[in-house]
Amino acid sequence: MTTSVAQPSVEEFAAAVRAALSDLPADEVEDLTDGLEADLTERADDPDAPDLGDPAAYAEELRSAAGLAPRSAPRANIFAESATSLRTEWTAGVKRIRSSRRGSALLDFIVTLRPVWWVLRGWAAWMLGYGMLGQIAVTPNPFEIALLIGLCVVSVQVGRRKWLTWRWMRPIVIGGNILLIVLVPYIFGWAINSIYNSAYASIDQSYSDQSSSGLTYGGKQVGNIFAFDAQGNPLTGVQLYDQDGRPLNAVSDPSNTGYLSYTDANGNETVVVPSSAVPGRPGWNVYPLASVPPGTITDTGTIPPTATIIAGVPPFATVQPLAGPQPTTPADAPTDAPTALPTPSPVPTH
């Protein structure tokens, strides 16, 4: 019995064959070489058996007979080799950091933060989806929130190696990670910018809401107001104030506005000007406002003092008188002389 003598060479040969098949998945190698030692041992005892030859050639023969592709092509080999060397260097680097106490603590700290990256990765993927659609959700709707949560769950599960653990997924996950790491600063900048812009836009919106219009009714600008008394006769020189005692000016910036131009329902342009009878300020709350011919406005946007002032013409000569007994106000109290404006009492502070 020569088994004891042949045994080491059998082991060596089998090991060399397995090494030559190392590019295959482990279970494939196991299937191919299961029982190899037994066969080799028996063969070694067989005096008629021809020379076994080179283990690499043996492995190649085994591989081709089993219908498997020959050992990876040179180009794929370079890729695999560089991946292997990268992994080796990575491992060595980690080992170097781990060798110092401080480095080890730092590494542990970073490893603890890994779940943060997983969630961030889900969020970044979500943002990237919006980037591709060309819009950003500062206030996402419920579906978008559900999508965000879903992506974060997938990301965390991938991170925990619970989902998508197939071998071929690994390069995709690694590639996606690298892409997101590169893009995360941009995505952050973009998100902050968008949030800032939208906040600014809403501030701007409210600001412009306040500033641009004086009086509006039903969303449309009110250019002039015509008041009628209880008998249905038009009034002039009516001073209007709101519930807080503020003058109901036709323009929002009365002291700096010289005229207000509006177009009525018939398409006619009217340029109204404030009453000059209010002491200390333009009488933008004295109705009806008088007007000037549109052509008199100068190129610089001012109205020459020589311009013809036309009294506001009410849309109706009279309106229907009110029914029933009237309050104590005398019917002839209003005067049709705009210059005889009574001083309001109490005098508003504005």
Partner: peptide
């Protein structure tokens, strides 16, 4: 040898063969 082993493996993968392991006395299984 290797051609035969590879062929056995391939025929098994193709569903033409059945396989089972028999332990041998003291030595590796077959």
């Amino acid at each position: 040898d290797a051609s035969v082993y590879g062929t056995l493996r391939r025929l098994y993968s193709a569903g033409a063969l059945t396989t089972y392991v028999v332990p041998s006395d003291g030595g590796p299984h077959r």
